[in-house]
């Protein structure tokens, strides 16, 4: 018994890697996912805020992430944008991460293809047609996080005179029939938008709180990687953020709330399996450690 427990404590870490890999691979190969998720309060707050907006209202979606955090943040951004498209909320999207444009434009293209024809969503609701320029605009990336957030408080055109494709933004209040970006005729600064949804794997949401919320009082909702969410909870507790989507779990919660299970929901099954596995390892490791230590103190472990 002593030998078994001692061997367990000195197990080669590659066996643990292999078990974790199997825990992830098997559900994905079988195509199984969680059938439902139980949304946390912080996610419901974001959903309720967006759900209570009127058709035609405008939000800023600051999608500040790079390919490294796609597995967590893309499902989140996709779910939020689908919610906006279904509700008729117009979206001014941008990125403050240098590696963001490629990721964001791919996601927007994918969603615009999905919403290019009238149809029915998987939950039976009507899927409206959404168009670039009218329902969503992508401004691209600009260097300087704080400077750009402050500039947005004065006039979006100070930082982004053109959209990502190089099309000149129309003047604020100009005739929307004379431009290919009519959405931007209604946007000058934060007073024209209902909130900023920042989805990021970095500390950029803190900049949105400091410069956007504190300086211009624009409401901020945050989606972040699981690593970051513990750091952002104080901002949620003090009301400086309206809500928080934490990692893949937050994305799965949002998919549940909009009745559109997708990749986050599929990912949460292997996630749960691996979590259970790790908790099991920690418990077993600790039990084995204390038993072996006790035996060694008593008889030197000659069993």
């Amino acid at each position: 018994m002593y030998k078994i427990l001692n061997a367990f404590l000195k197990i080669n870490r590659r066996w643990i890697f292999l078990l974790v890999l199997l825990g992830v691979l098997i559900p994905l190969v079988l195509g199984k996912g969680l059938t439902r998720s139980y949304p946390g309060d912080e996610v419901v707050k974001v959903y309720n805020f967006l759900n209570n907006l009127e058709e035609g209202d405008i939000i800023i979606a600051s999608m500040d992430y790079d390919p490294a955090t796609i597995p967590e943040l893309n499902p989140m951004a996709r779910a939020v944008l689908r919610h906006c498209f279904n509700k008729g909320i117009r979206v001014v999207s941008l990125t403050l991460h240098p590696a963001g444009p490629g990721v964001v434009i791919t996601l927007i293209d994918e969603l615009l293809r999905e919403y290019s024809q009238p149809g029915v969503n998987p939950d039976g609701s009507v899927r409206p047609v959404r168009k670039y320029g009218e329902d969503i605009v992508f401004l691209g990336y600009k260097v300087g996080t704080a400077v750009n957030i402050l500039a947005l408080g004065e006039d979006v055109r100070l930082s982004w005179p053109q959209d990502y494709a190089g099309v000149e933004l129309p003047a604020y209040g100009s005739d929307p029939t004379q431009t290919t970006l009519p959405l931007m005729c209604d946007v000058q600064n934060y007073s024209d938008v209902k909130c900023v949804v920042t989805i990021s794997g970095t500390r950029i949401p803190e900049y949105w709180v400091a410069y956007g919320y504190q300086r211009y009082h624009v409401k901020v909702a945050t989606g972040c990687t699981a690593v970051m969410f513990a750091d952002f909870y104080p901002y949620l507790q003090t009301g400086q953020m309206i809500g928080l989507l934490p990692g893949m779990k937050g994305a799965a919660d949002y998919e549940e709330l909009i009745n559109r299970p997708a990749r986050a929901m599929v990912g949460m099954l292997p996630q749960s399996i691996v979590h259970l596995m790790i908790v099991g390892f920690i418990i077993l490791g600790n039990i084995a450690f204390f038993i072996v230590r006790r035996w060694e103190k008593k008889g030197g472990g000659n069993r």
Partner: peptide, 24 residues
């Protein structure tokens, strides 16, 4: 502990993302 748990969740999410890419 909370931060470590969150970090595990984030790292496993990245593994899931890569495996999802490889398989699907």
């Amino acid at each position: 502990g909370a931060s470590f748990g969150a970090t595990v969740m984030a790292r496993i999410s990245l593994l899931i993302g890569r495996m999802d890419f490889l398989i699907n």
